[in-house]
Amino acid sequence: MPIYNKLVRDRIPEIIEQDGNKTVTRILSEDEYLLEIKHKMHEELTEYEEAAEDADQLEELADLLELVHAAAAVLGATPAELEELRAEKAAQRGGFSDRIYLVEVHDE
C-alpha cells in the first residue's frame, strides 16, 4: 500500500476509487494547505524542467498556473486580481519577453 502524503487535485481520490482502490484523505488547514501548495510548486517546477517535449512543458506550466491560482486564493486574490497585479508590474518594470540577461552593473 503506497503512502503519498501530498497535495493532489480535487478529483484524484475519485479517479483512484473508480479504479477499484480505496483512498485515505484529510482536509488540510489553511496553513498546511499553503505549505503543501509550495511543496507541490517545487514538484511541478522540477517536472517542467525535466520535460523534454513542448506539449509536456506546457502541461507542467498549466499545473504550475493552477497552483499559483490556488495560492492566490488562499491569500485572498482572484486570478483576475493576480493578472491585474502582474500587468501593473509589467507596465512599471517590464516583462521578460526581451530576453535581457543582466551580466553586471558598474558603480559610478
Rank of each mutant, 00 (worst) to 15 (best):
K6D: 02
L67Q: 00
L34G: 00
I15M: 12
Y33P: 04
E83W: 04
D31L: 06
V8D: 05
N21W: 15
H106A: 13
H39W: 07
A87V: 11
N21D: 14
I27F: 12
H69N: 15
L28N: 10
K40Y: 02
A72Q: 03
L61S: 03
E44C: 05
T25P: 01
A87G: 00
L102W: 07
D10W: 04
H39N: 15
K40V: 03
V8F: 06
L34M: 11
R86V: 05
V74Q: 14
E81W: 12
R86Y: 07
E81Y: 09
E81T: 05
S29T: 13
D10P: 01
G20V: 05
A55V: 12
Q18C: 04
G95T: 11
D98Y: 11
A72Y: 06
M1L: 11
L64V: 07
L35R: 13
A73G: 06
R86E: 12
R11C: 03
K40W: 04
L34N: 08
E32V: 04
P13D: 09
E47G: 00
A62E: 05
I16W: 00
L35Y: 12
A87H: 11
E43G: 03
T23F: 04
V74M: 02
M41N: 07
L75E: 14
E53A: 09
I100L: 15
A90R: 15
L64Q: 10
Y101S: 06
E108K: 15
E66C: 08
N21Y: 13
G95Q: 10
D31M: 11
L64C: 07
L58M: 13
A51F: 01
E36Y: 08
K38W: 02
G76P: 09
E14G: 01
A72F: 09
H39C: 04
T23V: 15
P79Q: 12
D19A: 15
V103G: 07
Y101T: 09
S97F: 14
E60V: 04
Q57K: 15
E17N: 14
K40N: 04
L65C: 06
K38F: 06
K38G: 02
A87P: 00
H106S: 08
I3L: 15
R9I: 03
R9D: 01
A71K: 13
E43R: 01
